[in-house]
Design a protein around this nucleic acid. Structure first.
Lengths: 341, 341
DNA sequence: ACCACCATTGGTAACGTTCCCAGATTTACC
DNA sequence: GGTAAATCTGGGAACGTTACCAATGGTGGT
């Protein structure tokens, strides 16, 4: 009745079952060079009969062996954006015969520190981190020489391979396009100022104004919105002004969706003949059918994951010994009437 | 110039540095019982000085020790739904001091088999699987006694703890509501018939017709749509009929979004005074602002992840030795005018 | 017939950790 | 002060695996 999970078979169990030595089994399992065909077959039969699986933990304990694990610390696993990101990384990582160890930091520096310590304890070969911003535990000394790739965000003072989106350039381009289309008062809806991408996107926004010789109205810049609700409220406050902006730049899709909700909640009469033009950094579902003029700055999160993982694997497989590199992924523009005035 | 990553310090390095034996270091690291305070301090100082991290792989090699790893095989990491799911599981798993090893199967049975084999080789303590449907590699013999929890879908012939959504009941209820509201011709947009949840949701659809004594028109049942594009085309074909359905039940959010796109692409004149009522199994962003009557059958994917992980941890920590259990999570209904006629 | 060489096989040690036990030291008590 | 007990410390072995080396047997060349 009681089914005391009997021990997993070891290589020795297989060896005895097949009537050979451990070494022969090991050799068969790692290629079978220099083993008599008859024995190869006997070993395979025993492996199948016993349901033996090689213990990767024991295996990677031997010197020169690697754990085959990549640690990945994401700020928010539930964000579909990072889901795509994980998928891209998984493609590359599993393609290199390794596995992905994943944890969520929830933008919490302490969680990030503990997670990374745990990863290192589990002997990960490398780390892919979407950093919260904390620096100390990402320094080489704290990492014990484990290669690190930062994704989506950089950290000041941390020299590591980094994959970013061309935040500044894309924001600059789209805001410049708004200005060229005649917009003179442009709102900005952004995240907490501590978020790296938010800073960069604001920088593009600011530079576009500067280069066009257009003064930026700080009153139209609202930051700190982390969710759709607060973004909606911020957008409503812009719309309620005596002199509302004619266009609004949203630094991420949470803010864009909030802005959309605010616009749809405003009566068409009040919106007037001149609909407020929206630019959204990041795509969102159904953006094209809302009947609201919106320009999307889109990029491929999956590709971001692929790039990050590729840079890491390149380091691991020793091909690349040079200085840390930073790659900026290009964006593409989806225009659903957003630049019209 | 060349920086040959010097070996990680081991417990022996720390012992020598602190002038004690391996065992004393080990004892300090696992609680410090029965060690002189002075030595405890010396060891901690050496650990900090050397940047020593305990090797979890070596640690878990000892008998009776566990790897602290949970393997998670998801059909599609990029689906935001499963992102939420992973987050919920991560909460529980990391709360139990374990880590999550994640892989994507892309609905591919072979990938699932290899992934699970890999997980077992890495000595995972348990598995959480969103199964593709294949049975053999989920049998206890193939798993070597590693506990398994199935999530979101069951597999015929596999006895394991399972967490499902109340697909049948919720579909039944909402379709019954449509019928009660006077709808007599109800369309069905679904996934491939091989998908477990699709079958269950269709079953609820069918039963509601049966119990209401309403004959089900098979011509209005379109299945096999896996993405928004094909769902849109399917919806268009329904709308183009001489006798279009007055309501459409969408078995997942991909199909619902396709249906929405089809409706929005149809001129308002053609849609007529009687808008087609939609029911969507699964929520989607902006559903409430589309101006289309839609009822959402919503459930909390994060909770699904939490439940699955909790069942697994309960098995692991030995509290629960009983027969495999199946839990059905309740749904809630969000009504954006979907049941009107 | 002898020797060099290759293919095949197994024994031993080591990876980093912790458990078991035995020895050493301190404390407690008469 | 002497003994018993409690506390503290370290040596050896083991977890499952593979690298290294040695031993065996067979083959071909001279």
């Amino acid at each position: 009745m009681a089914a005391p999970t009997r021990r997993q078979p070891t290589i020795l169990t297989v060896a005895e079952h097949a009537g050979v030595s451990r070494m022969t089994v090991s050799r068969v399992l790692s290629g079978g060079k220099n083993v008599r065909p008859e024995l190869v077959e006997r070993v395979h039969a025993s492996v199948a009969a016993l349901g033996y699986r090689r213990n990767e933990q024991a295996r990677s304990l031997r010197p020169g062996q690697r754990s085959g694990l990549i640690g990945m610390a994401i700020t928010n696993v539930a964000n579909p954006y990072y889901g795509e990101f994980v998928l891209g990384a998984d493609e590359v990582v599993s393609g290199s015969g390794r596995g992905l160890l994943i944890g969520s930091t929830s933008e919490d520096e302490d969680k990030e520190r503990l997670l990374i310590a745990d990863f290192i304890g589990r002997q990960v070969e490398g780390l892919i981190v979407v950093p919260t911003g904390a620096r100390r535990h990402l320094l080489p000394a704290a990492l014990g020489g484990v290669p690190l790739v930062l994704a989506s965000r950089a950290v000041a003072g941390v020299r590591a391979d980094t994959v970013l989106v061309a935040d500044v350039q894309a924001s600059y381009d789209q805001v410049s396009a708004l200005i060229a289309a005649g917009h003179r008062r442009i709102g900005f809806l952004g995240t907490m100022t501590s978020v790296f991408t938010g800073q960069r996107r604001y920088e593009g926004f600011r530079l576009a104004h500067e280069d066009a010789g257009l003064e930026l109205d700080e009153d139209l810049v609202l930051v700190g919105q982390q969710d759709v609700e607060s973004a909606k409220a911020a957008m409503e406050s812009l719309l309620a002004r005596e002199d509302p902006p004619t266009a609004v730049f949203c630094a991420n899709n949470r803010n864009a969706i909030g802005a959309v909700r605010a616009l749809l909640g405003t009566s068409r009469r009040k919106r007037g003949a001149r609909p407020t033009a929206l630019v959204s950094f990041d795509n969102f579902e159904l953006a094209d059918v809302l009947g609201i003029p919106v320009t999307i700055i889109d990029h491929d999160a999956r590709d971001l994951g692929r790039q990050a993982a590729s840079m890491l694997i390149a380091r691991l497989d020793g091909a690349d010994e040079g200085l840390p590199q930073t790659v900026e992924l290009p964006t593409r523009t989806l225009d659903y009437g957003g630049t019209q005035i």
